[in-house]
Structures are given as C-alpha cells and as structure tokens.
Write a protein that binds this DNA or RNA. Structure first.
Lengths: 212, 212
DNA sequence: CCTTTATGCGAGTATGGCTCATGTTAACGG
DNA sequence: CCGTTAACATGAGCCATACTCGCATAAAGG
C-alpha cells in the first residue's frame, strides 16, 4: 500500500513538522469539525508554510487519513500493551478491555472523537466503480485492520483454532462497536455509560456464537 | 424542530423544483460522491437558478440533510406498508423485514448508498458545545427516529408492554445495523449476502435479551 | 390601477484547496 | 575551497466553489 504521505520526512525537523501538523489537525477537528477545517489554518498553527504542507500531504483528506492512521497505531499499541500487563482469563475480558481503551481514547486523545480510525468521508474521492466487488481483506478499511489484529490477539489468548466464520464475525463486531460507541459519544461528550455497557453486551452475545 | 428547508415551497412549481433538486442531488451523489458534489451542478441539472437553490436550502449540507429526510420518510413508509401486507408471527420477522427493506433501498434508491438517513457529515457545522449532554430523545439523529418508529411497530405487533431498556436497545440495534449494512455495501456494491445474514444474526441475538 | 409584498434571479464576492516558479540549502567531485 | 547539481522550502497567486445581494418580476391587496 502506498504510504498516505507524499514524501516521507527524512530529517529530524521534517518529522517534527509532520507530527506538529497532525497534532494541530486533531485539535482543530475538535474545535471546528471536519468541514470547517482548513489546510491553511493547520499549516499556520503548526508554523509550516502551506507549500511545505502539500509536500507531505496529498490533500486535505490525506491529512485526515494520516491522522486516522496514527490513531489506529496508537490504539493497537495501547491494547497490546494492556493485554500484556493484565493477563485475562476469558475472551469477554478482551472485549471489555478493547472497548474500555477505545472509550478512553475518545475522552483523552484530541480529534479522536471526530475521526477515530477514519472512514469519516463518505466514499473519499468518488464512489467505487460500479461492479467492483472487494473481498473483506482488500477492503482497505481501518476497522478491518483492527479486526484482524484483535483476531490474532484472541487466538493467541485461547489458542483455539479459528473457525472460518470468526474472521467475518470479528469485522462485524468491530464495525458495530464503532457505531454504537460513536452514538454513545454523540449523546454525551464523555460517553454515555449505559450505551457503553450495552455495546459490550451486544458484542458478547454476538461473539458467543463463534467463541467458547 | 425547524424544518430543514429555508422556505417551504408553496406553489406547485416550487414543490416540483425542490423535488427535482433532491432527485438530481441523489443521482450526483452516486456519480461523484459527497465531496465532489457541487450546488451549481445540482442547480444546473435541475434547471433551477443558483439563487433559487439557496432560497430553499441553507447550504450544501442542508440539501443533503433534506435528501436524507426524504429517504427516511420513504423507508418508514415502505416498512409500515409491508408490515400491513404480510402479517408476521414473531418479532424476528420484523427484524428481517426491516433489514430487507433497507437493503432493497440501498440497491434501488439513487443516492441511498451514500447518504441513507444522513449523519454522513462528521458533526455537521462544528461539534456540539463542550459539556452538552443530550438525552437519547433530543439527539436529533435520524436513526433514533427509526428506532422510535420500529419500537411502536414492535409493540403493536406483540402488544407486550415495553421494558424501559427496550428503547435504548432498539436505538443500539438500529445503529449497529446501519453500520454493518454500510460495511456490506462497501465490500460489495450489491450488498454482501453473508454480511447481511450476519447482521440479522447480530440483531436477533442482542434483542433476544429484551423481547420474548 | 397603483402600492405593497413575496418570490425569482445570476453576476459578483469571499474563501479555501492546491500549484509552481523561484529561492535556499545540502551533496558531491575535483 | 569552489562549482555544479540535485533536493527541498516557500508563499504569492490561480482556480473553483459556496454563498450573497440588489434588482427584476410576479402576486396580492385595496
């Protein structure tokens, strides 16, 4: 997959610049939302000339996608970390852990409330060609990546061989989780507790068909 | 709730014009996606001067929201219709029916694949004020309206009194359904059959906690 | 028929995404 | 140390798009 960046920053200063731009992008997203976000303002706040901005990011969406990717990596990082720390007995604990971590990031990570892992844009850059049929794997959807990673973690945890349905089930579970949690945060900026609980329930019930 | 329209079309011609604009908006969404959609082009195709366009729609988002609302009404219309026709015995039949109808609209209604009931835009017009806490009812989310309507239908069907948890459960179910079906159509323009089946399963398992 | 009020209209304005010609620094050879 | 060349940095400006505003036209009212 071609990197989301036009040019990968090589020197120290460039790396910091890109990081700063992503930081400011995140803050601005919280302040004004996606539509009102302007590349000029991001560049201005990050103290990077607009021309340089476009050396690294293909366009406005590219910026947001890059942020989403950073979020994704941070999330996976945290989850694997916490799994290593608190050893869990049952797969439901993993569900809880992942959801709790997601919720925590919604609360603390700037911009995460607006973009989390991406897919903010309806069909970025026009809809897929008519008749195109993707496989689940090739659907370059960040939630699929999350599902993939969680599957690996789940399997490692209870070293039971996966049924072929498990892949699909996990993608479905992640997608549903994402949606319900978004709702929980739309209703309450801190995340409606009842809805979060309900989300866990939803996933547990569903996955019980595929896991012991 | 203030109408999505700036001015409600009074005369016949105006009504037709608004309808035409929504039609063209839907077609264009399928062709180029949300970001590339321009108000000028919508106006041009609908043969309506741009000034008149803005008499009816507050802005580009207003146009899309109006379309989403029309979709919502069409959906509820169809569902109630079909419930009346084929009398169903169990609440799971209702789940199937609603999902099938949604899928059908995804396939046949122009623009429905891109916007369905709305909420396409991440926090339209900036994020909610910090500290704002909405109730579920006041969350002006179209999916909540769907949930509300479906609850009424469900109750009528099996005239069992609703537990207080049912409201929330249905909202959660609708939200999750929406997300999984969107995935199903991202993977396959005609809607991945397996994912659609999986979606039904997800909802059935979950709602089984709240319905007999 | 005139006045008043609503509606129709599109040239024009403001603004934002993005480019590209020019300036600046680094890399390297002799 | 200088000259040459390539890579990178910069921001004025281009173009497209969302949206307005003042005038034109039609309808309503008396």
């Amino acid at each position: 997959m071609t990197s989301t960046l036009r040019r990968r920053p090589a020197q120290r200063r460039s790396v910091e610049r890109v990081e700063r731009m992503l930081d400011e992008c995140a803050l601005l997203l919280d302040e004004v939302g996606y539509e009102a976000l302007t590349t000029k303002e991001v560049a201005r706040r990050a103290e990077v000339p607009i021309g340089t901005f476009y050396q690294f990011f293909r366009d406005k969406q590219g910026l947001v996608r890059a942020l989403a990717l950073r979020n994704l990596e941070a999330f996976l990082q945290r989850v694997t970390q916490r799994i290593a720390e608190a050893d869990l007995g049952h797969w439901t604990d993993l569900v809880d852990l992942a959801i709790d971590e997601f919720v925590d990031m919604k609360r603390t990570t700037p911009g995460f409330g607006v973009v989390d892992f991406g897919e903010v844009l309806p069909t970025p850059g026009g809809p897929p060609l008519e008749g195109t049929k993707r496989t689940l794997d090739s659907a370059l959807d960040n939630n699929v990546i999350v599902a993939d990673r969680l599957r690996a973690l789940t399997l490692a945890l209870l070293h039971a061989p996966a049924g072929p349905g498990l892949d699909r089930a996990l993608v479905v579970a992640v997608e549903a989780t994402d949606a319900v949690l978004k709702l929980a945060f739309r209703v309450d900026p801190d995340g409606d507790a009842d809805l979060i609980a309900e989300c866990k329930q939803l996933v547990r019930r569903y996955l019980a068909d595929h896991l012991p």
